[in-house]
Computed example of a mutant assay.
Amino acid sequence: MSEQTAAPAELVHLEVSDAVATITLDSPHNRNALSRQLITELREHLATADADPSVRVVVLTSSGRVFCSGADLSEAATVPMHEGARAIVALQRQIVALTKPVVVVVAGAARAGGIGIVAAADVAIVAEDATFALTEVKLGLTPAVISLTVLPRLSDRAAALTALGGEVFSGAEAAAYGLVTRAVPAADLATAVEETVASLATGAAQGLRETKALLGRDLLARIDRDGEELVELSARLFGSEEAREAMRAFLSRPKP
Rank of each mutant, 00 (worst) to 15 (best):
L91Q: 08
R111P: 02
P101K: 10
E136Q: 15
D129T: 13
L91A: 08
A124V: 10
L141A: 13
V103P: 00
V96K: 01
R93V: 00
L134M: 15
V118I: 13
V89P: 08
K100P: 03
K138P: 04
G116P: 06
V104H: 01
T131M: 14
A107R: 15
A133K: 12
I88R: 12
G114Q: 06
R93M: 02
A133L: 11
F132R: 11
G113C: 04
R93C: 00
A119G: 05
R111C: 12
V105H: 05
A144N: 12
G140F: 08
E136L: 10
L151N: 12
G114N: 04
A127W: 06
V102L: 07
V102I: 11
G113L: 01
G140E: 07
A133G: 12
A87N: 14
A109R: 15
V106A: 04
G113W: 01
L151S: 13
V123W: 08
V102T: 12
T149G: 06
V96N: 01
K138Q: 15
P143M: 09
Q94S: 03
I95A: 00
A124T: 11
Q92W: 03
G108L: 02
T99H: 14
G140W: 08
D129I: 09
G114R: 07
A90R: 15
P152C: 05
V126K: 12
A121M: 10
L139C: 03
D122R: 09
V96Q: 03
V150I: 06
V96R: 02
K100D: 01
G108C: 02
G116Q: 07
I95E: 00
A120R: 08
L134R: 11
F132N: 13
L134W: 07
I115C: 01
G114F: 05
G108N: 01
Q92P: 07
R86C: 08
V118R: 06
A144R: 07
G113T: 02
L148R: 10
G113V: 00
A127V: 07
E136P: 06
V123C: 11
A119W: 01
I117M: 14
L148Y: 05
R86L: 12
